[in-house]
Write a protein that binds this DNA or RNA. Structure first.
Length: 300
DNA sequence: AGCGGTCAAGTTGAT
DNA sequence: ATCAACTTGACCGCT
C-alpha cells in the first residue's frame, strides 16, 4: 500500500461552517476614519479564528495542507484603506492567533500556502504594477511568517506578445525580492500563457521551485509529457514538492475545460504521481467534500 | 429575511 | 468592444 499524498484544501469550505469574511473598499471608506479600524479588526479577528478552525478541521480529517485566501486580511494593501494589523484595536491579539496557527501547524505537521491572485504580476513592464504586486507579496509573506507557511505561489503573469522579454523581467524582479518572500516564492504553469517548459528555465535561474499543475498542462501543452514535466518539476524542489490537481467541469470532452468540476475524477491523477511524497492541492468546487472523497478513494 | 448587483488591482481570449 | 475567467463567493443595501 502506497502512502497517500498530502492533500491540500483550497481556501474555503463547502459544507463546514467555517467562513472567511471580507468587506468592500467602498463601504469602508464611507465610514469615519476612526470607525474603520474597528470594522477591520473585527474582520481580521474573525478570519484568524477561522484559520485556526480550518487547520483543526484539516488535522481531524487527514488533510495535510490548507491554502490561505489572499484576503485573509481584507484590503490589507489597498492604497486608501490599507493598514498594519498591529495598529488595529486588539491587533497584537490578532497576531497572536495567527502565531498560534503556526504553532498548531508545527505540532500537527500541517502545511499552509498562499496563492496571490491575478492582479499580482511580476513580469509587467509597468513598474507601478510590479511595485503594487511586491507590496502584496510583502503582506502575504508577513502572514506566512506568523503561520509558518512555506509557499507563496504565483503565475508567470502576462506575455505582452513577447514571452522571452517578459520572463527576463520576471527573473530580474524575483532576484530583487527579500529573502522572506523569495524563500517562499514558487511559480506555477497556467492554462493560457506560461507552460512548464516556459517556466523551468526561470526556476533554474532563480532557485524558485515549480508548482506543476497537471490540469493546466493538459489545457496548454508544451511538448513535455506529463511524466517529463513531473520529473523536471520535482527536481526544482529541495523541500516537499507541491502539485495541483483538478478535473474539468463536464469532463474532457466538454467545451469548458478550464472550469473546475465539483470533484476530482481519479482518472485525472497522473499514474506517474503514484508513490511520490508530494503535496497535492485539490482545486475542486466541492472543497473539503472533494478532498475527503479522494482520501476515501485512495485508501479503499 | 431574502435577493440582486457589486466588488482594488491585470491579462487574455471568446463572444 | 465587451466581458468572463482566473486561486475563491461574500458583502451591502434594498425590498
Amino acid at each position: 500500500m502506497t502512502p497517500p499524498f498530502r492533500f491540500g484544501l483550497c481556501c474555503l469550505f463547502k459544507n463546514e461552517p467555517i467562513t472567511f469574511r471580507l468587506t468592500t473598499a467602498e463601504f469602508l471608506l464611507k465610514k469615519q476614519p476612526g470607525e474603520r479600524e474597528g470594522i477591520l479588526a473585527a474582520l481580521c479577528l474573525h478570519n484568524a479564528r477561522s484559520l485556526l478552525a480550518a487547520l483543526a478541521y484539516c488535522r481531524d480529517h487527514g488533510i495535510g495542507c490548507f491554502r490561505i485566501n489572499s484576503r485573509i486580511l481584507p484590503l490589507k494593501t489597498h492604497p486608501e484603506a490599507g493598514y498594519a494589523v498591529k495598529d488595529l484595536p486588539g491587533g497584537s491579539d490578532i497576531i497572536d492567533i495567527f502565531k498560534s496557527c503556526g504553532a498548531f501547524c508545527r505540532r500537527h505537521d500541517l502545511r499552509t500556502t498562499f496563492h496571490p491572485d491575478q492582479f499580482i504580476v511580476l513580469s509587467s513592464s509597468d513598474p507601478g504594477i510590479v511595485q503594487r504586486s511586491v507590496a502584496e507579496l510583502v503582506y502575504q509573506a508577513e502572514v506566512a511568517g506568523w503561520i509558518h507557511a512555506d509557499v507563496i505561489n504565483l503565475h508567470g503573469g502576462g506575455a505582452y506578445g513577447d514571452k522571452k522579454t517578459a520572463l527576463q523581467r520576471l527573473v530580474k524582479v524575483i532576484r530583487s525580492l527579500s529573502p522572506k518572500i523569495r524563500s517562499r516564492l514558487t511559480l506555477e504553469n497556467d492554462d493560457r500563457v506560461y507552460t512548464p517548459a516556459d517556466l523551468l528555465p526561470v526556476c533554474h535561474a532563480t532557485g524558485v521551485p515549480l508548482v506543476y499543475d497537471v490540469h493546466h498542462h493538459r489545457c496548454l501543452p508544451d511538448g513535455l509529457s506529463i511524466e517529463q514535466a513531473t520529473q523536471q518539476a520535482l527536481a526544482t524542489w529541495s523541500r516537499e514538492p507541491l502539485f495541483h490537481l483538478s478535473s474539468p467541469l463536464g469532463g474532457w470532452s466538454s467545451r469548458t475545460l478550464r472550469s473546475h468540476d465539483d470533484f476530482i475524477d481519479p482518472a485525472d491523477i497522473p499514474a506517474c504521481w503514484r508513490g511520490l511524497r508530494i503535496t497535492v492541492e485539490v482545486e475542486a468546487k466541492a472543497k473539503e467534500l472533494a478532498v475527503k472523497k479522494l482520501l476515501r478513494y485512495l485508501s479503499a
